[in-house]
């Protein structure tokens, strides 16, 4: 169910005996950049201005489970009998449990994170407590088959680095925090993505200053960029009542 449409799961949520009565809802989703490229000071003291920051989002899945360190699993009880299990500890998923699927939006879109507000489409789902989101990132044709792309300048102590970077990730970002009780249609969800997270941990001091440099895979700058794109802290979901 990781990349397939959640419609069957949503139907089951409506009809399979959930403890909570659900009603069908739909809502608009918009997205854009949070800081829109304005000057960002990195951890190592570089001042970065972005001229390009684009991200391909292939889908959003909304869940009831809360993200790491705040999990509330509101799944209906599958049984009330105590079952004592004593066994060997195995490596198993982290403590984030997504819980019930509540809504999805599978309209691929390439976002300009230097702009504030772009339509993503209509999400269809059911009412409930929306606590987390899965964000699917995939390469897109209109992004030259990249998933993310950025360009800009970084300046420190009179030294300027001009850089570009791209990622070709096919990655699912699990457990992005969201907190809203959606009971009826109307209103919208806004996703603000902060490209400052993409550069915050890059050490620009290791890069060539004589020409525009492309961040190279296997280097700290590329690694920091990748981790920034994947960082759930870069994604900010907000419910705006209609």
């Amino acid at each position: 169910m990781r990349t397939t449409h959640l419609f069957p799961a949503l139907l089951c949520t409506l009809a399979c005996g959930s403890d909570t009565a659900r009603s069908r809802i739909n809502f608009e989703v918009t997205a854009g950049g949070l800081t829109q490229g304005g000057p960002v000071t990195t951890e190592s003291g570089w001042t970065v201005e972005l001229s390009t920051a684009e991200l391909s989002v292939a889908g959003l899945y909304f869940f009831e489970g809360e993200p790491l360190f705040a999990r509330v699993d509101r799944r209906p009880m599958r049984g009330r009998l105590l079952g004592l299990v004593i066994g060997t500890a195995y490596a198993h998923p982290g403590h984030y449990v997504e819980g019930e699927a509540l809504a999805d939006l599978l309209q691929p879109v390439t976002l300009d994170l230097l702009a504030p507000d772009q339509p993503l489409g209509q999400a269809n789902g059911v009412s409930g407590a929306y606590n987390s989101v899965r964000v699917v990132l995939k390469p897109a044709a209109d992004l030259d088959n990249h998933t993310a792309r950025m360009a800009g300048t970084a300046t420190k102590d009179g030294v300027t680095v001009r850089f570009t970077a791209h990622l070709d990730l096919d990655r699912t970002i699990e457990g992005v925090a969201f907190g809203a009780d959606l009971e009826a249609s109307g209103g919208k969800v806004h996703l603000a993505i902060d490209p400052a997270e993409w550069v915050r941990r890059i050490d620009f001091g290791s890069l060539d200053t004589t020409q525009v440099v492309e961040l190279q895979e296997g280097t700290q700058p590329y690694n920091a960029f990748t981790r920034g794109v994947e960082n759930t802290a870069a994604f900010h979901f907000t419910w705006i009542p209609g």
Binding site: P67, L68, F69, G94, Y96, E174, G175, V176, A177, E197, R201, D203, Q220, Y222, N223, A224, T226, R227, E230, N231, T232, A233, A234
Partner: peptide, 19 residues
């Protein structure tokens, strides 16, 4: 620093403060 480790390892999930 986690940024010195290969990508795809030591992801911080919902806790972006872990460096």
């Amino acid at each position: 620093d986690l940024t010195t480790l290969p990508t795809g390892q030591y992801g911080t999930g919902g806790d972006g403060s872990v460096e």
